[in-house]
Design a protein around this nucleic acid. Structure first.
Lengths: 253, 253
DNA sequence: TAAATAGTGTCTATAAGACATTATCTC
DNA sequence: GAGATAATGTCTTATAGACACTATTTA
């Protein structure tokens, strides 16, 4: 399976015959769906997992909370084919939060395209999840056309408050993140640049939904230090009692 | 997070005001992409992991192998919104193989929508993976418009032989399946109705890409028997030497 | 000194990896 | 009986879970 290289057909050779075909080709006018990207932007605020939502000012679902998102730019559909899905997600993220996409973890969750999920027309959305480090949250400014935006606590969300199928999308996005906690450094996107053992433990607890034993988690943590994923940082974190040592993720070369 | 129920807004209440809004609403004519479903249909033939591909008879990529797939039906875009993505995938699967979707494992892998992945026009595809039990493979008949179809060995595929970004899709589909081998009964979709320990072991070896130790795998297998996932079936599998006991997956209630 | 939280150690259960060994069939 | 594969057993190591314990700070 390693035989299959990732980015195929980057500079594909086009035969004269095929070039002629393409020159003559005119896309037929089948009915087409609208395609959007929606982003479940997560962060941790006040020790709670939260998601950034915008309140809809228009029908349908006027007054409900919705995920930030928007249409994928597809160009004129012939010469200019527009932007990639990831690019669209990154653009929307920046537009709606003011954050640079390079500072945020962004990954596709999947496509959601049930018929009638939008009563106006057929809309297929590509859902992404984004993780924002808590120390960047203060920089988030409610973007563009959004009437009202807020970080809502995930555990107290009610599906009735959410527009479209966004409750389902959020649920799937959380699941998506949760399954990757142990196999990726996804948690690094939800702690500040420096953090204590307990702070990272808390992130894991929130993402997995299970309480993490302090002693057992430390073992995991120490393994990450041994493997060079995490290193100690200068300084200490002052608390109400004994200060804690402070760590940081090692930048990958 | 459990607060979020899966299928939200099944019978949403629409206020008179919103109903009026929807009655007046006319979708604007933003440029829209074409949306297709493509299916990576896998099975095991002659002890090799194979994927069902069709040879393209037309430009672009004429002569290359491609995943079976087709356009998602989106209705007239207003009153009738067409079919769900899963429905589209199941329909295409049946059209192209003759298999009933209920007999086949089918799951979404994700959306692939890079600009210019199709030189004709902007096409976003929702990729699915399908797993066909080996005993159903003989029933597969090259479907509909497909000029030529064949089960190609995954490990000997070259990206150059594949149309569009289908090499990338296949790779991601294999990855998708591989990550679920240990946490789901996905392997049950790749063995015949009855199977031996070694046969299931071989499936795991192919899906994970790692050789599975006979003794160690048996332990795993016995755990599945204890958990009621697998049960012994009558009869034996005759081989060149000692016959092997035969098992089957317990039907879920 | 008391309260609080950081940090350490221990015991057990579970599962994986790497073998060696025995059992039972066909030819 | 020879060859082959099924089936079993053993030893080691890695990890997770539960929980008791010690250390260091603030108030």
């Amino acid at each position: 399976m390693a035989v299959l290289s990732s980015k195929a057909s980057k500079a594909r050779k086009v035969s004269p015959e095929e070039a002629q075909f393409l020159a003559k080709y005119r896309p037929e006018s089948f009915p087409r769906p609208s395609v959007t990207v929606d982003i479940a932007v997560f962060s941790i605020i006040d020790a709670e997992l939260r998601v950034l939502l915008v309140r809809r000012g228009q029908h349908p679902f006027k007054g409900s909370w919705a995920l930030p998102g928007g249409f994928v730019r597809v160009g004129d559909g012939h010469r200019d084919q527009g932007e990639d899905l990831e690019t669209a997600a990154a653009r929307e993220l920046t537009e709606e939060t003011g954050l640079r996409a390079s500072d945020v973890f962004l990954e596709q969750v999947g496509a959601f395209g049930r018929a009638n999920r939008d009563p106006r027309m057929r809309v297929i959305t590509i859902a992404f999840c984004a993780l924002v480090r808590p120390d960047l949250v203060p920089l988030v400014r409610a973007g563009g056309d959004a009437a009202e935006a807020d970080w809502l606590t995930v555990s107290s969300l009610s599906p009735n408050d959410l527009a479209f199928d966004h409750a389902e999308i959020i649920e799937r996005a959380i699941e998506h993140v949760g399954t990757r906690v142990d196999t990726s450094d996804i948690a690094s996107s939800l702690v500040a640049k420096t953090f204590t053992v307990q702070e990272l433990r808390h992130v894991h607890a929130l993402l997995t939904g299970k309480p993490q034993d302090p002693g057992n988690f430390r073992r995991k943590f120490e393994r990450l230090v041994e493997d060079g994923v995490i290193e100690q940082a200068p300084g200490k974190r002052l608390t109400a009692s004994k200060p804690a040592m402070v760590y940081r993720f090692v930048k990958k070369g």
